[in-house]
């Protein structure tokens, strides 16, 4: 039988994969993709909780509203982030995270 725990473990593993990617990868675009993966993993946990917490015999739609907001924010974040990456590429001619060290103390 598939339980809430199964979904939470899949969500956690997806989040961990994204986290490993954010730390280990050096291409800014791929770091961004891994960030998106982490956001989606959080969404999966939310939808899982929503399905297994019934209100009046229906899934808890408050959680799904939060997922709706998260997806909207993620879309806005991707647009702004990719614009920053393009601006960065214009000035550095590179997408390597180690080419941006100006803020390093």
């Amino acid at each position: 039988m598939i339980t809430l725990g199964h979904y939470l473990v899949v969500s956690g593993m997806l989040f961990a994969l994204g986290l490993a990617g954010v730390i280990a990868r050096r291409n800014i675009i791929i770091v961004y993709m891994c960030l998106e993966m982490m956001l989606s993993a959080a969404n999966l946990a939310l939808v899982g909780f929503s399905r297994f917490h019934l209100v009046n015999g229906l899934p808890d739609y408050t959680a799904q509203s939060l997922v709706f907001f998260t997806i909207t924010v993620a879309a806005a974040e991707v647009a702004v982030g990719l614009a920053i990456i393009v601006a960065l590429f214009r000035s550095k001619q590179s997408v390597d995270v180690e080419s941006v060290t100006k803020l390093q103390g």
Binding site: I2, G5, V9, G12, A16, L17, L19
Partner: peptide
């Protein structure tokens, strides 16, 4: 990165395994 990911996964599996709420099908 790999170490953190493995630790996080193990932690989540441990928490999920010990919570009765997560056993609901």
């Amino acid at each position: 990165g790999v170490l953190l990911a493995v630790l996080l996964t193990l932690q989540i599996i441990a928490v999920v395994g010990s919570t009765s709420l997560a056993q609901k099908g």
